[in-house]
């Protein structure tokens, strides 16, 4: 279980996270929705130690993130970054097998390549792209490779940061289905950051709405449309009128 307790984070005078409290149960797929710049990515990055919160604690399976051995702790996670974040200088298979070539999960080169190709197949990519470089792939293929990298070591927890951003509707749907399949298949705990409601409906069990540095609503996906929360209603209907201020 991931438990955020009173998380606060500011960048100079920009108070991004004011007091976030949220629980994500083990094996659950949680989607965090909210407008651009509301701190959704910041929230995920605080768990991984990429951003240090100003105050508050994050507990993963009873262990305080700040008190855990960082490398061992991170081995439990997989992350799909918004832009893929594939390493330009490495071929696709080495990107996927990055964690399998170093550290405590190190395998032989042949084994790492074999696992890499297996994971690429899992995300619908053939072995012929294994030796290509990320720059030679389309945006959708890069997302799939990044997804393959996120699941390469069968992590317990996977974070998806805007998994469908920049993709066409068909490819978005393919990625959403893949994510859902993988989450169910591996039985992982998943947190997805998105403002794409199609993604939310396809991926999430639970949904949390982040706005103004706080979780404004949290509940099951099925209750999203009848949440009775004015922030959620405005967001899912995409209207300009409501408590969320918009610039015109």
């Amino acid at each position: 279980m991931i438990h955020f307790k009173n998380i606060k984070k500011s960048f100079d005078n920009n108070h991004v996270l004011r007091d976030v409290n949220l629980e994500v149960a083990r094996g659950q797929s949680m989607a965090i929705i909210g407008g651009s710049g509301t701190g959704k990515s910041v929230l995920i990055k605080t768990v991984l130690g990429l951003i240090k919160p100003d105050s508050g604690i994050i507990i993963v399976d009873g262990i305080d993130v700040n008190k855990s051995t960082h490398d061992q702790f991170l081995e439990r996670f997989g992350m799909l970054f918004q832009g893929g974040a594939l390493f330009d200088s490495l071929p696709v298979w080495k990107n996927v097998a990055f964690r399998l070539q170093r550290g405590s999960q190190k395998r032989s080169k042949d084994e790492a390549r074999e696992i890499s190709i297996k994971k690429l197949r899992r995300v619908g990519l053939g072995p012929e792209i294994a030796d290509k470089y990320p720059a030679e792939l389309s945006g959708g293929m890069q997302k799939r490779v990044s997804l393959a990298r996120a699941i390469a070591t069968d992590p317990e927890i996977i974070f998806f940061d805007e998994p469908t951003t920049g993709l066409d509707p068909i490819m978005s749907s393919v990625i959403n289905e893949l994510i859902r399949e993988i989450v169910v298949e591996l039985g992982v705990t998943a947190m997805t950051i998105t403002h794409d409601m199609t993604s939310v409906m396809a991926i999430a069990d639970q949904v949390a709405m982040l706005h103004d540095g706080k979780i404004q609503w949290c509940g099951s996906r099925s209750k999203l449309k009848d949440s009775g929360n004015s922030y959620v209603n405005q967001f899912i209907h995409g209207t300009a009128k409501g408590p969320i201020k918009t610039l015109r």
């Binding site: 990055k45 991984l48 130690g49 990429l50 960082h70 490398d71 991170l74 081995e75 996670f77 997989g78 992350m79 970054f81 918004q82 832009g83 974040a85 594939l86 390493f87 330009d88 990055f98 964690r99 170093r102 550290g103 990298r149």
Partner: peptide, 17 residues
């Protein structure tokens, strides 16, 4: 700098490197 901009540095850290 490009690696930082494209989140490759963050990816490295999440991959325990």
């Amino acid at each position: 700098a490009t690696m930082k901009v494209t989140e490759q540095l963050d990816a490295l850290i999440t991959l325990s490197t």
